[in-house]
Design a protein around this nucleic acid. Structure first.
Lengths: 209, 209
DNA sequence: GTCTATACTACGATAGAC
DNA sequence: GTCTATCGTAGTATAGAC
Protein backbone atom coordinates (compact mmCIF):
# COMPACT_ATOMS: atom_id res chain seq x y z
CA UNK A 1 0.00 0.00 0.00
CA UNK A 2 2.09 2.80 -1.25
CA UNK A 3 -1.05 4.91 -1.02
CA UNK A 4 -1.36 4.92 2.74
CA UNK A 5 2.34 5.14 3.32
CA UNK A 6 2.53 8.17 1.05
CA UNK A 7 -0.40 9.87 2.77
CA UNK A 8 1.00 9.16 6.21
CA UNK A 9 4.30 10.75 5.33
CA UNK A 10 2.58 13.61 3.52
CA UNK A 11 0.54 14.60 6.58
CA UNK A 12 3.66 14.60 8.70
CA UNK A 13 5.84 16.52 6.27
CA UNK A 14 3.20 19.04 5.27
CA UNK A 15 2.31 19.51 8.92
CA UNK A 16 5.90 20.13 9.91
CA UNK A 17 7.03 22.25 6.99
CA UNK A 18 3.93 23.49 5.25
CA UNK A 19 2.93 23.13 1.64
CA UNK A 20 5.89 25.03 0.26
CA UNK A 21 8.36 23.83 2.85
CA UNK A 22 7.87 20.15 2.16
CA UNK A 23 9.23 18.67 -1.05
CA UNK A 24 7.73 15.92 -3.15
CA UNK A 25 11.14 14.31 -3.46
CA UNK A 26 11.49 14.22 0.29
CA UNK A 27 8.04 12.81 0.84
CA UNK A 28 8.49 10.14 -1.79
CA UNK A 29 11.88 9.16 -0.42
CA UNK A 30 10.55 8.93 3.14
CA UNK A 31 7.67 6.79 1.86
CA UNK A 32 10.18 4.58 0.09
CA UNK A 33 8.89 5.21 -3.39
CA UNK A 34 9.63 7.30 -6.45
CA UNK A 35 8.50 10.85 -6.71
CA UNK A 36 6.57 10.24 -9.88
CA UNK A 37 4.15 7.99 -8.04
CA UNK A 38 2.82 11.15 -6.42
CA UNK A 39 2.00 12.47 -9.85
CA UNK A 40 0.50 9.17 -10.80
CA UNK A 41 -1.73 8.76 -7.78
CA UNK A 42 -2.58 12.32 -6.87
CA UNK A 43 -1.82 14.35 -9.92
CA UNK A 44 0.90 16.37 -8.22
CA UNK A 45 1.89 18.09 -5.03
CA UNK A 46 -1.33 20.03 -4.64
CA UNK A 47 -3.38 16.88 -5.15
CA UNK A 48 -1.36 15.05 -2.52
CA UNK A 49 -1.93 17.93 -0.14
CA UNK A 50 -5.69 17.76 -0.53
CA UNK A 51 -5.62 13.98 -0.27
CA UNK A 52 -3.72 14.37 2.99
CA UNK A 53 -6.50 16.64 4.26
CA UNK A 54 -9.12 14.06 3.34
CA UNK A 55 -7.00 11.42 5.04
CA UNK A 56 -6.99 13.44 8.25
CA UNK A 57 -10.74 13.98 8.10
CA UNK A 58 -11.23 10.29 7.58
CA UNK A 59 -8.97 9.35 10.48
CA UNK A 60 -10.79 11.82 12.73
CA UNK A 61 -13.98 9.88 12.19
CA UNK A 62 -12.50 7.03 14.14
CA UNK A 63 -11.46 9.34 16.93
CA UNK A 64 -14.67 11.30 17.29
CA UNK A 65 -16.36 7.99 17.96
CA UNK A 66 -20.07 8.35 18.49
CA UNK A 67 -20.11 11.62 20.29
CA UNK A 68 -22.85 12.89 18.04
CA UNK A 69 -24.96 9.77 17.76
CA UNK A 70 -27.63 9.47 20.36
CA UNK A 71 -29.92 12.31 21.26
CA UNK A 72 -28.61 15.51 22.81
CA UNK A 73 -28.62 15.52 26.61
CA UNK A 74 -31.75 17.16 27.93
CA UNK A 75 -30.56 18.44 31.27
CA UNK A 76 -28.01 21.22 31.82
CA UNK A 77 -26.01 18.93 34.08
CA UNK A 78 -25.73 16.21 31.45
CA UNK A 79 -24.76 18.79 28.84
CA UNK A 80 -22.05 20.08 31.12
CA UNK A 81 -20.62 16.62 31.56
CA UNK A 82 -20.63 16.13 27.80
CA UNK A 83 -18.76 19.42 27.29
CA UNK A 84 -16.13 18.45 29.81
CA UNK A 85 -15.72 15.05 28.18
CA UNK A 86 -15.26 16.54 24.75
CA UNK A 87 -12.77 19.17 25.90
CA UNK A 88 -10.81 16.56 27.80
CA UNK A 89 -10.65 14.37 24.75
CA UNK A 90 -9.58 17.29 22.62
CA UNK A 91 -6.67 17.94 24.93
CA UNK A 92 -5.58 14.33 24.79
CA UNK A 93 -5.81 14.29 21.03
CA UNK A 94 -4.05 17.61 20.61
CA UNK A 95 -1.31 16.64 23.00
CA UNK A 96 -0.99 13.02 21.99
CA UNK A 97 2.07 12.04 20.07
CA UNK A 98 0.17 10.00 17.54
CA UNK A 99 -2.18 12.77 16.50
CA UNK A 100 0.42 15.50 16.50
CA UNK A 101 0.98 15.49 12.73
CA UNK A 102 -2.73 16.19 12.26
CA UNK A 103 -2.72 19.07 14.69
CA UNK A 104 0.19 20.68 12.95
CA UNK A 105 -1.45 20.29 9.58
CA UNK A 106 -4.73 21.71 10.81
CA UNK A 107 -3.07 24.59 12.65
CA UNK A 108 -1.34 25.67 9.50
CA UNK A 109 -4.60 25.54 7.64
CA UNK A 110 -6.30 27.55 10.36
CA UNK A 111 -3.86 30.37 9.87
CA UNK A 112 -4.09 30.50 6.12
CA UNK A 113 -6.94 28.30 5.04
CA UNK A 114 -7.12 26.66 1.64
CA UNK A 115 -9.57 24.18 0.22
CA UNK A 116 -7.93 21.60 2.47
CA UNK A 117 -9.50 23.23 5.50
CA UNK A 118 -12.96 23.08 3.98
CA UNK A 119 -12.52 19.38 3.53
CA UNK A 120 -11.40 18.79 7.08
CA UNK A 121 -14.07 21.03 8.56
CA UNK A 122 -16.76 19.36 6.48
CA UNK A 123 -16.03 16.18 8.41
CA UNK A 124 -16.10 15.41 12.12
CA UNK A 125 -14.39 18.64 13.08
CA UNK A 126 -17.27 20.84 12.03
CA UNK A 127 -19.77 18.50 13.60
CA UNK A 128 -17.87 18.64 16.85
CA UNK A 129 -17.88 22.42 16.90
CA UNK A 130 -21.58 22.78 16.25
CA UNK A 131 -22.24 20.04 18.77
CA UNK A 132 -20.30 22.02 21.36
CA UNK A 133 -22.37 25.10 20.61
CA UNK A 134 -25.58 23.17 21.13
CA UNK A 135 -24.29 21.68 24.36
CA UNK A 136 -23.37 25.09 25.71
CA UNK A 137 -26.86 26.28 24.85
CA UNK A 138 -28.36 23.42 26.81
CA UNK A 139 -25.94 23.72 29.71
CA UNK A 140 -26.66 27.41 30.13
CA UNK A 141 -30.34 27.37 29.19
CA UNK A 142 -30.11 29.43 26.04
CA UNK A 143 -32.14 29.21 22.88
CA UNK A 144 -30.05 31.63 20.89
CA UNK A 145 -26.67 30.30 19.75
CA UNK A 146 -24.85 33.63 19.38
CA UNK A 147 -23.47 33.83 22.93
CA UNK A 148 -22.71 30.13 22.98
CA UNK A 149 -20.71 30.36 19.80
CA UNK A 150 -18.38 32.94 21.27
CA UNK A 151 -18.11 30.88 24.42
CA UNK A 152 -17.15 27.81 22.42
CA UNK A 153 -14.38 29.74 20.71
CA UNK A 154 -12.89 30.84 23.99
CA UNK A 155 -13.38 27.42 25.57
CA UNK A 156 -11.62 25.62 22.79
CA UNK A 157 -9.01 28.36 22.73
CA UNK A 158 -7.90 27.22 26.15
CA UNK A 159 -7.37 23.78 24.75
CA UNK A 160 -5.52 25.01 21.71
CA UNK A 161 -3.21 27.19 23.74
CA UNK A 162 -0.86 24.50 24.84
CA UNK A 163 -0.47 23.17 21.35
CA UNK A 164 -0.34 26.37 19.39
CA UNK A 165 1.66 28.36 21.88
CA UNK A 166 3.99 25.47 22.46
CA UNK A 167 7.07 27.63 22.18
CA UNK A 168 5.75 30.04 24.79
CA UNK A 169 4.84 27.14 27.07
CA UNK A 170 8.28 25.70 26.74
CA UNK A 171 9.86 29.02 27.69
CA UNK A 172 7.45 29.76 30.52
CA UNK A 173 7.72 26.34 32.10
CA UNK A 174 11.31 25.69 31.13
CA UNK A 175 10.09 22.28 30.17
CA UNK A 176 8.94 20.76 26.87
CA UNK A 177 5.36 21.65 26.04
CA UNK A 178 4.33 18.01 25.74
CA UNK A 179 5.58 16.71 29.06
CA UNK A 180 2.86 14.52 30.60
CA UNK A 181 2.68 16.38 33.92
CA UNK A 182 2.19 19.66 32.13
CA UNK A 183 -0.60 18.21 30.03
CA UNK A 184 -2.28 16.80 33.13
CA UNK A 185 -2.09 20.18 34.82
CA UNK A 186 -3.55 21.96 31.82
CA UNK A 187 -6.29 19.38 31.62
CA UNK A 188 -7.29 19.94 35.22
CA UNK A 189 -7.17 23.67 34.84
CA UNK A 190 -9.28 23.67 31.69
CA UNK A 191 -11.88 21.55 33.45
CA UNK A 192 -12.06 23.93 36.38
CA UNK A 193 -12.12 26.98 34.13
CA UNK A 194 -14.86 25.51 32.00
CA UNK A 195 -16.95 24.89 35.05
CA UNK A 196 -16.45 28.45 36.22
CA UNK A 197 -17.22 29.85 32.78
CA UNK A 198 -20.43 27.86 32.44
CA UNK A 199 -21.53 29.02 35.89
CA UNK A 200 -20.88 32.55 34.82
CA UNK A 201 -22.86 32.08 31.63
CA UNK A 202 -25.81 30.84 33.66
CA UNK A 203 -25.54 33.79 36.03
CA UNK A 204 -25.40 36.18 33.10
CA UNK A 205 -28.64 34.86 31.78
CA UNK A 206 -30.41 36.14 34.85
CA UNK A 207 -28.41 39.31 34.97
CA UNK A 208 -26.97 40.15 31.53
CA UNK A 209 -23.62 41.87 31.19
CA UNK B 1 15.10 53.89 3.76
CA UNK B 2 15.11 50.66 1.82
CA UNK B 3 15.97 48.98 5.10
CA UNK B 4 12.65 49.55 6.77
CA UNK B 5 10.60 48.89 3.70
CA UNK B 6 12.38 45.60 3.19
CA UNK B 7 11.77 44.58 6.78
CA UNK B 8 8.16 45.63 6.63
CA UNK B 9 7.53 43.53 3.55
CA UNK B 10 9.58 40.66 4.95
CA UNK B 11 7.45 40.43 8.10
CA UNK B 12 4.31 40.39 6.01
CA UNK B 13 5.52 37.86 3.46
CA UNK B 14 7.21 35.53 5.94
CA UNK B 15 4.13 35.76 8.14
CA UNK B 16 1.81 34.87 5.31
CA UNK B 17 3.86 32.20 3.60
CA UNK B 18 6.50 31.08 6.03
CA UNK B 19 10.26 30.99 5.59
CA UNK B 20 10.22 28.55 2.69
CA UNK B 21 7.03 29.83 1.15
CA UNK B 22 8.19 33.40 0.76
CA UNK B 23 10.75 34.20 -1.88
CA UNK B 24 13.50 36.75 -1.74
CA UNK B 25 12.64 37.84 -5.25
CA UNK B 26 9.06 38.46 -4.25
CA UNK B 27 10.02 40.36 -1.13
CA UNK B 28 12.52 42.50 -2.97
CA UNK B 29 10.05 43.25 -5.74
CA UNK B 30 7.33 44.23 -3.27
CA UNK B 31 9.80 46.48 -1.49
CA UNK B 32 10.71 48.04 -4.82
CA UNK B 33 14.32 47.04 -4.80
CA UNK B 34 16.66 44.42 -6.20
CA UNK B 35 16.99 41.00 -4.64
CA UNK B 36 20.69 41.37 -4.14
CA UNK B 37 20.13 44.15 -1.65
CA UNK B 38 18.85 41.48 0.72
CA UNK B 39 22.19 39.76 0.46
CA UNK B 40 23.97 43.03 0.89
CA UNK B 41 22.11 44.20 3.97
CA UNK B 42 21.24 40.98 5.72
CA UNK B 43 23.56 38.39 4.28
CA UNK B 44 20.76 36.33 2.78
CA UNK B 45 17.29 35.03 3.29
CA UNK B 46 17.97 33.59 6.73
CA UNK B 47 19.50 36.84 7.86
CA UNK B 48 16.49 38.79 6.65
CA UNK B 49 14.23 36.42 8.51
CA UNK B 50 16.03 36.97 11.79
CA UNK B 51 16.14 40.69 11.18
CA UNK B 52 12.39 40.60 10.68
CA UNK B 53 12.03 38.90 14.06
CA UNK B 54 14.14 41.60 15.69
CA UNK B 55 12.06 44.21 13.93
CA UNK B 56 8.90 42.74 15.41
CA UNK B 57 10.39 42.62 18.90
CA UNK B 58 11.46 46.23 18.54
CA UNK B 59 8.03 47.35 17.36
CA UNK B 60 6.40 45.51 20.24
CA UNK B 61 8.32 47.69 22.65
CA UNK B 62 6.29 50.63 21.51
CA UNK B 63 3.07 48.72 21.94
CA UNK B 64 3.76 47.22 25.34
CA UNK B 65 4.17 50.77 26.60
CA UNK B 66 5.07 50.92 30.22
CA UNK B 67 3.03 48.04 31.50
CA UNK B 68 5.99 46.73 33.40
CA UNK B 69 7.43 49.95 34.74
CA UNK B 70 6.09 50.99 38.07
CA UNK B 71 5.80 48.60 40.95
CA UNK B 72 3.51 45.59 40.84
CA UNK B 73 0.04 46.21 42.22
CA UNK B 74 -0.17 45.19 45.85
CA UNK B 75 -3.85 44.35 46.14
CA UNK B 76 -5.64 41.43 44.47
CA UNK B 77 -8.20 43.83 43.05
CA UNK B 78 -5.60 46.03 41.41
CA UNK B 79 -3.86 42.95 40.02
CA UNK B 80 -7.13 41.75 38.54
CA UNK B 81 -7.67 45.07 36.81
CA UNK B 82 -4.16 44.90 35.41
CA UNK B 83 -4.76 41.40 34.06
CA UNK B 84 -7.97 42.47 32.38
CA UNK B 85 -6.24 45.46 30.87
CA UNK B 86 -3.42 43.38 29.46
CA UNK B 87 -5.71 40.71 28.00
CA UNK B 88 -7.92 43.36 26.43
CA UNK B 89 -4.94 44.97 24.86
CA UNK B 90 -3.70 41.63 23.60
CA UNK B 91 -7.00 41.06 21.84
CA UNK B 92 -6.88 44.45 20.20
CA UNK B 93 -3.34 43.87 19.05
CA UNK B 94 -3.98 40.35 17.84
CA UNK B 95 -7.11 41.37 16.01
CA UNK B 96 -5.88 44.72 14.74
CA UNK B 97 -5.20 44.99 11.09
CA UNK B 98 -1.94 46.78 11.57
CA UNK B 99 -0.41 44.18 13.83
CA UNK B 100 -1.71 41.21 11.91
CA UNK B 101 1.55 40.52 10.04
CA UNK B 102 3.31 40.20 13.40
CA UNK B 103 0.78 37.76 14.76
CA UNK B 104 1.09 35.57 11.72
CA UNK B 105 4.86 35.60 11.96
CA UNK B 106 4.82 34.80 15.66
CA UNK B 107 2.18 32.08 15.29
CA UNK B 108 4.32 30.29 12.76
CA UNK B 109 7.27 30.50 15.06
CA UNK B 110 5.19 29.17 17.93
CA UNK B 111 4.42 26.04 15.99
CA UNK B 112 7.96 25.32 14.88
CA UNK B 113 10.26 27.66 16.73
CA UNK B 114 13.62 28.76 15.39
CA UNK B 115 16.12 31.23 16.71
CA UNK B 116 13.69 33.93 15.59
CA UNK B 117 11.33 33.00 18.39
CA UNK B 118 14.06 33.31 20.99
CA UNK B 119 14.71 36.81 19.80
CA UNK B 120 11.07 37.82 19.96
CA UNK B 121 10.49 36.18 23.30
CA UNK B 122 13.59 37.79 24.74
CA UNK B 123 11.89 41.14 24.25
CA UNK B 124 8.58 42.51 25.51
CA UNK B 125 6.72 39.30 24.82
CA UNK B 126 8.53 37.30 27.46
CA UNK B 127 8.29 40.16 29.92
CA UNK B 128 4.56 40.32 29.36
CA UNK B 129 4.09 36.62 30.03
CA UNK B 130 6.07 36.60 33.26
CA UNK B 131 4.30 39.78 34.32
CA UNK B 132 0.96 38.04 33.79
CA UNK B 133 2.09 35.13 35.94
CA UNK B 134 3.04 37.48 38.75
CA UNK B 135 -0.25 39.34 38.46
CA UNK B 136 -2.22 36.11 38.68
CA UNK B 137 -0.24 35.20 41.78
CA UNK B 138 -1.15 38.50 43.38
CA UNK B 139 -4.77 38.40 42.23
CA UNK B 140 -5.30 34.94 43.68
CA UNK B 141 -3.07 35.22 46.70
CA UNK B 142 -0.46 32.67 45.72
CA UNK B 143 3.26 32.59 46.41
CA UNK B 144 4.04 29.64 44.18
CA UNK B 145 3.92 30.38 40.46
CA UNK B 146 3.20 26.86 39.19
CA UNK B 147 -0.60 27.09 39.22
CA UNK B 148 -0.52 30.65 37.93
CA UNK B 149 1.62 29.65 34.99
CA UNK B 150 -0.91 27.11 33.82
CA UNK B 151 -3.68 29.62 34.34
CA UNK B 152 -1.85 32.18 32.23
CA UNK B 153 -1.53 29.68 29.41
CA UNK B 154 -5.25 28.99 29.39
CA UNK B 155 -6.12 32.65 29.84
CA UNK B 156 -4.02 33.74 26.92
CA UNK B 157 -5.26 30.75 24.97
CA UNK B 158 -8.70 32.31 24.97
CA UNK B 159 -7.22 35.40 23.42
CA UNK B 160 -5.27 33.46 20.84
CA UNK B 161 -8.26 31.40 19.80
CA UNK B 162 -9.85 33.97 17.60
CA UNK B 163 -6.63 34.62 15.76
CA UNK B 164 -5.23 31.14 15.50
CA UNK B 165 -8.52 29.40 14.87
CA UNK B 166 -9.61 32.07 12.47
CA UNK B 167 -10.75 29.58 9.88
CA UNK B 168 -12.94 27.80 12.42
CA UNK B 169 -14.34 31.13 13.60
CA UNK B 170 -15.17 32.10 10.07
CA UNK B 171 -17.02 28.83 9.52
CA UNK B 172 -18.80 28.85 12.84
CA UNK B 173 -19.95 32.44 12.60
CA UNK B 174 -20.34 32.52 8.85
CA UNK B 175 -18.63 35.85 9.05
CA UNK B 176 -14.97 36.89 8.69
CA UNK B 177 -12.96 36.26 11.83
CA UNK B 178 -11.90 39.89 12.08
CA UNK B 179 -15.27 41.57 11.88
CA UNK B 180 -15.40 44.30 14.53
CA UNK B 181 -18.58 43.06 16.21
CA UNK B 182 -17.13 39.60 16.58
CA UNK B 183 -14.00 40.98 18.14
CA UNK B 184 -16.04 43.05 20.56
CA UNK B 185 -18.05 40.02 21.57
CA UNK B 186 -14.96 37.93 22.12
CA UNK B 187 -13.45 40.74 24.14
CA UNK B 188 -16.44 40.92 26.44
CA UNK B 189 -16.57 37.17 26.82
CA UNK B 190 -12.87 36.89 27.63
CA UNK B 191 -13.26 39.56 30.28
CA UNK B 192 -16.16 37.74 31.91
CA UNK B 193 -14.42 34.37 31.66
CA UNK B 194 -11.26 35.77 33.18
CA UNK B 195 -13.20 37.12 36.08
CA UNK B 196 -14.86 33.77 36.63
CA UNK B 197 -11.57 31.91 36.36
CA UNK B 198 -9.81 34.16 38.85
CA UNK B 199 -12.69 33.74 41.28
CA UNK B 200 -12.38 30.02 40.89
CA UNK B 201 -8.63 30.18 41.49
CA UNK B 202 -9.24 32.06 44.72
CA UNK B 203 -11.85 29.56 45.82
CA UNK B 204 -9.48 26.69 45.04
CA UNK B 205 -6.89 28.15 47.35
CA UNK B 206 -9.18 27.61 50.30
CA UNK B 207 -10.42 24.29 49.02
CA UNK B 208 -7.90 22.74 46.59
CA UNK B 209 -9.06 20.59 43.70
C1' DG C 1 1.59 0.53 -11.36
C1' DT C 2 6.20 1.61 -10.42
C1' DC C 3 10.70 3.41 -11.46
C1' DT C 4 14.40 6.04 -14.32
C1' DA C 5 15.40 9.89 -17.47
C1' DT C 6 15.00 14.27 -18.44
C1' DA C 7 12.88 18.77 -19.19
C1' DC C 8 11.57 22.99 -17.21
C1' DT C 9 11.05 26.42 -13.80
C1' DA C 10 12.02 29.18 -9.78
C1' DC C 11 14.88 29.93 -6.11
C1' DG C 12 19.08 31.82 -3.50
C1' DA C 13 23.73 33.21 -4.01
C1' DT C 14 27.37 35.66 -6.27
C1' DA C 15 30.11 38.63 -9.27
C1' DG C 16 30.69 42.79 -11.39
C1' DA C 17 29.07 47.33 -13.60
C1' DC C 18 27.74 51.77 -12.11
C1' DG D 1 24.84 51.13 -1.95
C1' DT D 2 22.13 49.62 -5.69
C1' DC D 3 21.18 47.18 -9.87
C1' DT D 4 21.93 43.57 -13.82
C1' DA D 5 23.48 39.26 -15.28
C1' DT D 6 24.60 34.76 -14.45
C1' DC D 7 25.43 30.34 -11.97
C1' DG D 8 24.27 26.30 -9.46
C1' DT D 9 20.70 23.87 -7.10
C1' DA D 10 16.34 22.05 -5.91
C1' DG D 11 11.71 21.82 -7.04
C1' DT D 12 7.67 19.82 -9.97
C1' DA D 13 6.13 17.74 -14.03
C1' DT D 14 6.51 14.60 -17.89
C1' DA D 15 7.73 10.88 -20.97
C1' DG D 16 8.96 6.40 -21.55
C1' DA D 17 11.08 1.76 -20.01
C1' DC D 18 9.71 -2.27 -17.49
Amino acid sequence: MAHDRLLEVAVREFGQKGLEGASTRGIAAAAGTAMSSITYHYGGKEGLYLAAADYIAQQMEGVAERLDTGALPDTPEAARVAIQTILGRMIDKLAGKQTMPWSMFIMREQMSPTEAFDRIYAGPMGQLMTLLVELVCIATGRKEASVSRVAVITLSGQVLAMRVARATCAKLFERPADSPELIAEVRARVAANTDAILDRLIAERQEPL
